[in-house]
Every structure is written in C-alpha cells, then in structure tokens.
Nucleic acid binder design. Sequence first.
DNA 1: CCTCCCCCATGACAGATGTCACGCCACAGT
DNA 2: ACTGTGGCGTGACATCTGTCATGGGGGAGG
Lengths: 201, 201
Amino acid sequence: MIRLLLAEDQSMVREALAALLSLEDDLDVVAQAARGDEVVAAAREHSVDVALLDIEMPGLSGLDAAAALRGACPGVKIVILTTFGRPGYLRRAMEAGADAFLVKDAPAARLAEAVRRVLRGERVIDPVLAAAALADGASPLTEREREVLGAAADGVTNAEIADALHLSQGTVRNYLSLAIQKTGARNRAEAVRTARDKGWL
Amino acid sequence: MIRLLLAEDQSMVREALAALLSLEDDLDVVAQAARGDEVVAAAREHSVDVALLDIEMPGLSGLDAAAALRGACPGVKIVILTTFGRPGYLRRAMEAGADAFLVKDAPAARLAEAVRRVLRGERVIDPVLAAAALADGASPLTEREREVLGAAADGVTNAEIADALHLSQGTVRNYLSLAIQKTGARNRAEAVRTARDKGWL
DNA sequence: CCTCCCCCATGACAGATGTCACGCCACAGT
DNA sequence: ACTGTGGCGTGACATCTGTCATGGGGGAGG
C-alpha cells in the first residue's frame, strides 16, 4: 500500500479528495493536514510515502511546506496540487524540490496516476505549463522590490508601506517605480497583478 | 435514490465530490457540469432532484445559474457551494432562490446532510453567515456606481474607464469618489475589495 | 407642483503617485 | 584600486486621484 498525506485547507475538498483516492486499491490516505505548518509533523508521524500539497494554505504555503518537507524527510515524494496554474508557482515548486505539479482543472484520474509515477522516480509536469514557466524566466525583481510590491496590495498607501518596512516614502516610491517598469505595468495595482501571475511575488 | 446534479469548474474537485457523495447509499450523482451555462440543460435532461452549484464558474456564475434553474425547473432544490463565505454571496443566493448555502471550509458530512434536509423542505444556512449578511444589508451603490467600481479593478486608469463606459473622466472620478465613501474605503483598490467582499459588485 | 434622487458634466484644489536625477554606503568581482 | 550592483535616501516635477461645489436634465412620489 502507498501511504499518502493530504494537505488542503478546505475540509470539504480535502475529504472529497480522500474519498476519491481511497477508491484506488493501492492507495491509502493515512494523514491529513489543514495547514501548511502541520505537514512536516504529520508526515513524520505517519511515515508517508507521498505528500499531496495544496499551495494556498494558512500558516505556511504549500510551496514552503514542500521545501521544509524535502529537508526533513528527503525520501518523501512531493506532489503539488493547486488551483492556479501560474508559471511562477511551477518554477518555485521545482526549486522547492517537488516531484509533480498538478492543477485542479485536470481530470481526477491524473492524481492517482501522478502518485504512482513519482514513486517510480518520474517527474510529472504539464508540458504547456513547463513551457510557460521557462518562457517567463526568473524574476527580474530584487528582494527589496519584491517586498515593497508585495506590501502594496489592495489599496495600501505609500506611507503605510514605508511605515511597515521602516523605509522613507521616497524610497518606497522608487522601488515601486522600478517594479512597475520591470513588470511592464502602468501602476502599482497592475504591477501587483502581473507579478503575482508570473510568480514573482 | 436522490438524483444529484454537480456543477463545479475544477474537474478534480468535481470528481472528488462526486466520489464522496457516491459513498452515501441514498445519493446518486446523475449529472455533472463544468460551466454555469450548462446547468439548466443538464438538470432538465437528467431530471435531477437537487443541484449542487459552485459560484465561481465560467460562462455563468452559480448564482445566476441558480436563478435560471429556479425559473426553468421550480421543483429542483438548489444547494450553493462556495469557497468564499461572503455575506453578499449568501444574500444574492437567497434572492436567486437557493435552498442551502455551504462553504467548502465546512466538514464534508454537512454536504450530504444538507441535500437530505433541503428535500425535506428545510433551508440550510450557516447562522454566523446569516447574521453577517443581515448586518451588511443591501448595497448602497447605485447602478452606475457599481458599474464604474467594477470597471476600476486591477489598475485600470480613469481615462480607460471613461472610454469604456462612454463617460467623461470627471464623471468617473465622481462616481468612484462616491463609491469610495459608501464602502468606507480610502481609495479605489480598497473600495473594490470591500465591495466584492460584501457582494455589492 | 415641488422635492428627492439619480444621471451626467465641469472646474478647482489638495494630496497621492510615478518618474527622474543625484547622492551615500556596503559588498563583490576584476 | 576600480567598477558594478543593490540598498537607502533626498528633492523636484508631472500626472493621476480623490474631494468638493455647482450646474442641468429626467423620473418617482408626496
């Protein structure tokens, strides 16, 4: 039996996926987690073979959880499962040591298939997404620009960002200006959106 | 046997929920839809008893699909199933004639339970959400304000909004200013966010 | 009829935002 | 030692945004 850990914050989806996977004879969901920061402990306690991780989770994102798990339990295979097929997510998932990357739009049969394939040592990635990730390339933003742009979400004002990051307002404006140029956007809101899409945030 | 229609755009989630529901002896998922505009036809063709509708779907939102279904097949019970427990969603769901409103955060057992209860003529609503929806009340925005605020999402500039809606820039500014006041926000981005949260958009 | 309210518009003004030029410091590479 | 790059800051400037006052037109309701 293949022992699975399932991490996903929405209980209904998590339990539904567990029901789906349990229909397979060779799969057994032995642990569930509703938060990213529960993943490593759960994986250790139940000695799982494969971890299925959602990205959008409270506590710790699935990507960060993947990196932590890769460090703590190198033998565990990691499958990232996400709503959003953003190229940047894929890239960061690979950097975090994931073995497979699936979007929830894909047919359910892919899930069990992916679990079996990663256990055979294969990597499972949507070729279209892989191409997009390579085309976008790495983030052109410096660490500070990324930080400032991230803090600029949802109508936060320059003064608030400056205060939160202990910078001067002018510096915040400069970083935002650079980020806007590098993303090819016309203002902060657009810059935030495209940076998020490309996974630069 | 209770005949179910399941509408949800993410295949993996949809099929997983179908697997979950099939574990119940008295439930039978006889139809699935990946788009909101497929709902009415599917419900008619398979003569379903209960329709489970996700809100975020391409083609037609689950809320609009609910209204259409209520008109076309008045006997079919409607359960709204959504990721976001926004008070405005709940209010609009009730206006569209929904019998139950569930968030995906709730435990999976609630789903089958809700199906059985709506068939007994009951309404199933989270009391906390219901209170929040009543507290928020109806939208204070006029039709034009709603339109302009909706067009202001994601870094679109005043000039572009004016152009798209065939208004002058000053008028757009005025409407946005009113919308910002009414939402209690401090700028357009925040106004868009809170209006969305309250379901005023 | 008169009064609201909504629609649309203009003009003026303060403040926020985006851009640019320029400076300082630290650190890494050549 | 010199140069490049990134972090941090200032000042100046043009533009965009948000607010307010004010106006005309139309429809709904007292």
